[in-house]
Each structure stands twice: as structure tokens, then as C-alpha cells.
Design a protein around this nucleic acid. Structure first.
Length: 107
DNA sequence: ACGGTGACGCTCA
DNA sequence: TTGAGCGCCACCG
């Protein structure tokens, strides 16, 4: 019976989407951090792939996932849209760079 | 089963 | 500091 208990092994993408939803508004997480959270510290690339194919986009907060270097990263609807969404939530972006020291969310 | 692709990350010059 | 190259993993044809 696998009811009531979270599947230990779900599709990689599923884990990514789940963790992505945990990110609160006004905060951001890096692809790498997200990868670590799901158990694959070196799968940052795969994380981006999963978010890109995210089935419940653009409703999901996939725009809260940024690059480890503070870069905005990519977005299925357009990078500038992603920036706008983040700024709308209170995340200040300067020169397309995010201050991870202030807005990085820790799982 | 195999190879190419991609919303990344780190190191080196 | 900025730019370029290599390595990482998972998904699709």
C-alpha cells in the first residue's frame, strides 16, 4: 500500500515541480539548490529541463528559480516576463542579476 | 539501445 | 571582471 506515504521514488520531474511549489513569493531558489533538495546535487541541468516541461506552467512558480550566479536563467514565456514576475513579488533585479544574499530561499 | 539536446555549474585564461 | 570550455544529469526522437 503506497497510500498516505510519499513515494520515495517519483519521476525526477515530479520532484522538481513539487520542490518548486515550496518556494514562497518574494524569494528565489537556484537550479542547483533545487537539485540538491530533491537528491541530485549535480542535476541542475536536468532540473531546468523538468521545469521547462512543467505541465502546470505558467501557474507554477517556476519563475522563482534562478541561476546560482544570480542570473535570471530562462523562462518558457520569456525571460523578461520572468523578471517582471519576480519584481512584482518584491525581488529586486539589477542588471538582470538577483541578489541571492537577500532573496535566496533555503529549503 | 544510442545519441543529441537543454530554463546549469564550476574552473581556467 | 568577463568570456569560453568542459562536465554534470535527465528527457526525447
Amino acid at each position: 500500500m503506497k497510500q498516505g506515504r510519499q513515494r520515495a521514488v517519483a519521476s525526477f520531474s515530479s520532484l522538481v515541480w513539487r520542490a518548486n511549489k515550496l518556494i514562497p513569493a518574494g524569494k528565489v531558489a537556484t537550479y542547483g539548490q533545487l537539485a540538491v533538495s530533491i537528491g541530485c546535487p549535480d542535476a541542475a541541468r536536468a532540473v531546468g529541463n523538468a521545469l521547462n516541461k512543467n505541465p502546470f506552467a505558467p501557474q507554477a512558480p517556476c519563475h522563482r528559480v534562478v541561476r546560482s550566479d544570480g542570473g535570471v536563467g530562462g523562462f518558457a514565456g520569456g525571460q523578461k516576463v520572468k523578471i517582471k514576475l519576480l519584481k512584482n513579488e518584491g525581488v529586486k533585479i539589477i542588471n538582470q542579476k538577483i541578489d541571492l544574499s537577500r532573496f535566496l530561499f533555503q529549503f
